[in-house]
């Protein structure tokens, strides 16, 4: 973890309620896909944790994709080019791309699709064949599907209202035959994927966080390996660690 200043280089709407922000500066603390940053916003007390979608170390640019879900993310949409953000960078453990040896299925739902882009790049660089199953509410909410295809991924999309791709949930776009899965999205979606798929894999969890670096214990969850902090010991948990509540 490190506190750094990043400068907004671009902040644009890419889908309904969904924005892509490019931040320039020292991005070297992001070493794994699935890590996140925690952003201080003027007028808000708690920082806002947002997962990293891509990093370009040569150019010193980090891309985040965020959905407007409350006053904090609403405020983020107003930030113009040149705005300077106080960021805690390099948070969370991230996905382990080395754990998958041959074929990987990346499953994302909503804002959870964002970190899969950096993950897909890391897997492809390791020679892994990558397929993606992405779930959205409706066609207007779809993002990153084309970019993932451009990387060479086989991408299937599901929408709840059937306006694009398969009608239904992301599990309707998977057949359960995959060898290794990486999953990020809302908990009910991840639980459904977990139940349908028998493959080994990694799941990235969301949680309402206080600090984002393991101090406050506001995002504790119970796992097979004992209590873990989503922010510090996660957000990525291995399949065999997960205990679903309820």
């Amino acid at each position: 973890m490190r506190e750094i200043i990043l400068t907004v280089a671009r902040n644009e709407k890419i889908a309904r309620g969904t924005y892509r922000m490019e931040l320039s500066g020292d991005v070297s603390d992001i070493t794994s896909p699935g890590q996140f940053i925690n952003i201080k916003l003027d007028g808000f007390f708690l920082r806002r944790p947002i997962s990293v979608s891509d990093v370009d170390c040569d150019k010193g640019v980090m891309t985040i994709i965020y959905k407007v879900v409350g006053a904090g993310t609403e405020y983020m949409t107003t930030l113009g080019d040149g705005a300077r953000l106080d960021v805690l960078s390099g948070l969370g453990n991230g996905f382990d791309a080395d754990a998958c040896k041959s074929d990987a299925l990346l499953v994302g739902g909503g804002a959870g699709v964002a970190p899969l882009y950096m993950l897909a790049k890391a897997l492809i660089a390791r020679g892994v064949r990558v397929s993606c199953a992405l779930g959205f509410g409706t066609a207007e909410e779809i993002f990153l599907a084309d970019e993932l295809r451009a990387l060479g991924c086989d991408v299937k999309v599901a929408t709840v209202d059937g306006s694009a791709g398969v009608k239904g949930f992301v599990t309707d776009a998977t057949d359960g035959s995959e060898e290794y899965i990486y999953v990020c999205g809302p908990e009910p979606m991840m639980k459904a994927v977990y139940k349908k798929s028998r493959a080994d894999g990694q799941f990235s969890f969301e949680s309402r966080m206080g600090c984002g670096f393991g101090a406050c214990l506001c995002c504790t969850c119970k796992t097979v390996m004992g209590y873990k902090r989503i922010c510090k010991d996660g957000p990525v948990l291995y399949r065999e660690e997960i205990l679903w509540e309820g």
């Binding site: 708690l46 309402r208 206080g210 504790t220």
Partner: peptide, 15 residues
């Protein structure tokens, strides 16, 4: 969970 909430110039926790 949730154990934390944003407030004006502060926060609520219930760890």
């Amino acid at each position: 969970l949730p154990r934390v909430a944003e407030c004006a110039s502060g926060m609520i926790n219930s760890v």
